[in-house]
C-alpha cells in the first residue's frame, strides 16, 4: 500500500487572504501613471478654465517692451510684440484643450454609433463604410487635416473639425471590431432571444460593453489632436495669429531663439506635459480595463 498519510497537514491556522476584487476604477486609481496623468490633466483643465484669473496679463495686448528677459513683472519674459509669454502659454492651454476635447468628442460621437451599426448589421452597409474608412485611414492624420484646412481655411473651429474627421475612422474601426467580437456572445444572443429590437441590442447591450477600449481611444485621440493642432499651427495652417496657440508660438520663437530662449521652451514644455499626461491616462486605462472590464455600476436602481 502506498498511501502515505500526510501528517504535517495540520498547519497553524493561516490568515486567510481576504477576498478582494478590484473594480476597474480602483485599479485605475492604483496605477501610478493613471493617477499622475489624471491629476496633471485636471490641473491643466483648471488652468484652461481659470486662465483670466491665473494669467497676469492679456494674451493679446502689449504688456511692455518686446523680447524682455524673465523679470518680476514678466516671469518668463515677453515676445517680439511685447506680450507676456507666460500669459500667452496659459491661454494657449485653453486653445489646446478645446481642440483636443472637440476633436475627440466629434470623432467619438460620429464614429462609435457608425461602427456599432456597421459591425452589428454587416452586409453591404458595412462593406461601403469600411472602404471609406480604409481610404481615410490610409492618409496620415496630419496630411488629412492639412488638406481639409487648406480647402476650408484656418480657424480653431475648422481645425477641430478637420482633426475630428480625420480621427473618426479609427473610432469606426474600433467600434466595429469590438461589436463583431460581441455579436455572437451568448448575452447578445440572449437579448435576441428576449425579442429585443436591433437598435436596443446595439445601443443598450453592445455599446456599454465596448466602451472600455473606446475610452482609451478617446484619450489617444485627444493627445494626437493636440500634437496635430500644434504641428499645423507650426507650419502656419492652424490657429491664425494673434491667437496664443502653442504651435504658433513655437513657430515664431524660432526667429528669436538667441534673444529669448523661454519663448521656445515654455510652449514646448506645456505641449509635452499635456500630451504626456494624456498618454499616462491612456496607459492607466489600458491597464485597468485590460483585466477587469466590468466597473461597478452605481447601485441606484430606477
Amino acid at each position: 500500500m502506498t498511501a502515505s498519510p500526510a501528517t504535517s497537514a495540520a498547519v497553524a491556522p493561516r490568515v486567510a487572504t481576504r477576498r478582494v476584487r478590484y473594480s476597474a476604477r480602483q485599479k485605475f486609481l492604483r496605477s501610478t501613471s493613471g493617477l499622475i496623468g489624471t491629476l496633471v490633466f485636471l490641473v491643466l483643465v483648471v488652468i484652461a478654465i481659470a486662465a483670466p484669473l491665473i494669467a497676469p496679463d492679456s494674451p493679446l495686448k502689449r504688456a511692455g517692451d518686446a523680447l524682455q528677459q524673465p523679470n518680476a513683472h514678466h516671469w518668463f519674459g515677453t515676445d517680439e510684440l511685447g506680450r507676456d509669454l507666460f500669459s500667452r502659454v496659459i491661454y494657449g492651454t485653453r486653445l489646446s484643450l478645446e481642440t483636443a476635447v472637440g476633436a475627440a468628442a466629434l470623432s467619438c460621437v460620429v464614429g462609435l454609433p457608425v461602427g456599432i451599426v456597421t459591425g452589428y448589421l454587416g452586409g453591404w452597409v458595412d462593406a461601403v463604410i469600411m472602404r471609406v474608412t480604409d481610404f481615410v485611414l490610409a492618409v496620415p492624420e496630419i496630411l488629412f487635416a492639412l488638406v481639409v484646412v487648406a480647402t476650408l481655411g484656418s480657424g480653431v473651429f475648422k481645425l477641430t473639425l478637420a482633426i475630428g474627421i480625420g480621427a473618426t475612422p479609427a473610432f469606426i474601426r474600433l467600434a466595429r471590431a469590438s461589436t463583431l467580437s460581441l455579436r455572437d456572445t451568448e448575452y447578445v444572443l440572449a437579448a435576441r432571444s428576449m425579442g429585443a429590437a436591433k437598435r436596443d441590442i446595439m445601443f443598450r447591450t453592445v455599446m456599454p460593453n465596448i466602451l472600455p477600449p473606446i475610452f482609451v481611444q478617446i484619450v489617444v485621440t485627444a493627445s494626437v489632436a493636440i500634437l496635430v493642432a500644434a504641428a499645423l499651427s507650426f507650419v502656419g495652417l492652424g490657429t491664425p495669429p494673434p491667437a496664443p496657440s502653442w504651435g504658433g508660438m513655437l513657430q515664431t520663437s524660432r526667429s528669436y531663439l538667441y534673444q529669448q530662449v523661454w519663448y521656445a521652451i515654455l510652449p514646448g514644455v506645456a505641449l509635452a506635459i499635456t500630451v504626456g499626461a494624456l498618454d499616462a491616462i491612456g496607459r492607466g486605462l489600458q491597464q485597468a480595463l485590460g483585466t477587469e472590464t466590468a466597473t461597478k455600476a452605481s447601485g441606484a436602481m430606477g
Binding site: T185, E186, Y187, L189, A190, A191, T205, P208, N209, T293, A294, A297, G299, M301
Partner: peptide, 10 residues
C-alpha cells in the same frame, strides 16, 4: 458569457 456584464443581476 450569457449575462450582460454591465447590468446588475436584477
Amino acid at each position: 458569457a450569457s449575462l450582460n456584464p454591465r447590468l446588475t443581476a436584477a
